[in-house]
Design a protein around this nucleic acid. Structure first.
Length: 476
DNA sequence: GCTTGAATTACGCGA
DNA sequence: TCGCGTCCATTCAAGC
């Protein structure tokens, strides 16, 4: 009787769970998983802290508490045969591509359920329920995906830098290894970050998880290669779009609990963005300098432009004039484009900024009046003026080397400050008024170099930093 | 002009 | 606590 009342979706899910149980039983690894699970719980409650070098100990008398699950330590349950190609990479693997099994195509080109890609000991339900409840409270049950609207995508406010603090409970290791992208859910009712790492893992951390059983950290493996970008639109909180070096764009539908495939290409995807008022078009930076505009509803490419000679590291839109797009590239330039003039012909940029080395980011300020660039020639540049004709530059060590994600200077909540990583374990803050570095956010709890950042768009002062060791730090 | 190889650096893990 | 392995970033130089 009860089964009859189930929806088709629920029935399929139960069947899926049954299938997995049978598989686990046949492989006799259920007991192993349970051992690992209890071990992970033990680890979380007993052995939370990292060991510190003497130098680091000198900076702090209090132990640093880092929440970490077994999975985030890179120790996966012995799930050979359980999750196909979605296991952790073998320790001696030399390339990321080599970790993918030959039967990848069917799996990689279809939708992947959250359950199948879950690689942590936490169930999906608390995460799904939390996101959906915020959607309901915000009146976004339908996801708002069809809305083409002019929205304010972030709060504007001036922030007292002195008041920004890093509390020890706001430090966590969310995924193993190097984080390439970090994004807050754009809702004032949700303090949740999403991070993507080198292995293609997607980590969710609900910072307000006191009422939950676990530590509020969830990890999935929807991609086989580094996650290059994460997009969440304020009117589509139940949709998390991610791109990866493997040439795939997936969209997590929280309601359906599935990572659907949105776009696929042979080329690596290094960057992805959306116009602030249009949730249906994805601007995808792929291969050696191509921007492809993908229309999600018609599932076809509406434009494809060759804008650079090398990989495009960032794509950004002017918040006040969404026809104005900025790109940064490893060809040593950053460009501003007018989308109305980018037809199908050879593109011509409004402005070209040339640097001596690769440019890793070019972001418009919250007002759209300034453009900040970060490049490997150790410069942070700020363009201003009606046509961005004025520029000042400051020297800044951007040599992150091979093992760290490159630095990208990001804007805070107004045009006053740019935040950028510091090789001495801090966050440098550049004032656009004083045209110099004014302060560095430091903390004894900051035990690694933060490379990638995201300010909470609706909670001024809340700022996430992510490292190449999988840690996330949240200043508030 | 193209390919190949060397050199660079921070971090986590295991002994 | 120390040393090893990492290896999808980038630049430069050497060799063809």
């Amino acid at each position: 009787m009860a089964t009859q009342r189930l929806t088709e979706y629920e029935r399929k899910r139960i069947e899926n769970i049954k299938r997995n149980d049978e598989l686990l039983a046949s492989l006799n690894i259920k007991s192993k998983l349970s051992d690992l699970s209890t071990s992970a719980k033990r680890q979380r409650s007993e052995a939370k802290s990292y060991k510190l070098s003497p130098e680091k100990k000198a900076r702090s008398q209090t132990p640093i508490v880092i929440r970490r699950s077994l999975r985030t330590q890179g120790k996966s349950p012995d799930s050979a045969g359980l999750k196909d190609d979605f296991t952790e990479p073998p320790k001696n693997s030399t390339t990321l591509k080599s970790q993918v099994s030959p039967n990848k195509s069917a799996r990689e080109l279809g939708p992947i359920s959250m359950r199948d890609s879950n690689v942590c000991s936490e169930p999906d339900e608390p995460l799904v329920n939390k996101i959906l409840s915020v959607c309901r409270e915000s009146g976004l049950e339908d996801g708002g995906g069809d809305r083409k609207c002019r929205v304010r995508v972030r709060a504007r406010a001036s922030v007292d830098l002195e008041a920004m603090e890093l509390a020890p409970e706001n430090v966590a290791r969310v995924v193993p290894n190097r984080i390439l992208s970090v994004k807050f859910f754009p809702s004032a009712d949700l303090k949740m970050v999403v991070v993507g790492n080198k292995f293609g893992n997607l980590g969710f951390w609900n910072v307000d998880s006191e009422n939950e059983d676990g530590d509020g950290i969830y990890m999935y493996h929807p991609h086989p290669a580094p996650v290059s970008a994460i997009l969440i639109h304020p009117f589509s909180l139940n949709k998390v779009i991610t791109s990866c070096y493997g040439g795939r764009v997936r969209s997590l539908d929280v309601e359906k609990e599935t990572f659907g495939l949105v776009y696929s290409t042979e080329d690596a995807i290094f960057s992805m963005s959306q116009q602030h008022g249009d949730v249906n078009s994805l601007y995808i930076g792929e291969g050696h300098g191509v921007v492809n505009v993908w229309d999600e509803r018609s599932a076809r490419s509406s434009f494809s432009w060759e804008l650079h000679d090398s990989r495009i590291n960032t794509i950004d839109f002017n918040p006040e004039n969404t026809n104005m797009m900025a790109t940064s590239s490893s060809d040593g330039t950053a460009c501003i484009w007018d989308l109305r003039k980018l037809g199908k012909t050879k593109p011509e940029s409004l402005k070209v900024i040339t640097r001596e080395r690769a440019v890793h980011s070019a972001y418009f300020s919250p007002s759209g009046g300034l453009l900040a660039t970060t490049s490997l020639d150790d410069k942070i540049g700020v363009l201003s003026g009606a046509n961005y004709e004025d520029e000042f530059m400051i020297n800044h060590n951007n040599q992150t080397g091979r093992w760290l994600s490159s630095f990208k200077g990001v804007w805070g909540w107004d045009d006053s400050y740019i935040f950028v990583g510091n090789m001495k374990r801090g966050v440098d803050v550049v004032s656009t008024e004083q045209k110099r570095l004014v302060t560095t956010l430091e903390s004894p709890h900051l035990t690694a170099i933060p490379c990638r950042f995201d300010p909470h768009p609706f909670i001024p002062g809340m700022f996430a930093g992510a490292t190449s060791g999988g840690q996330v730090y949240i200043w508030s």
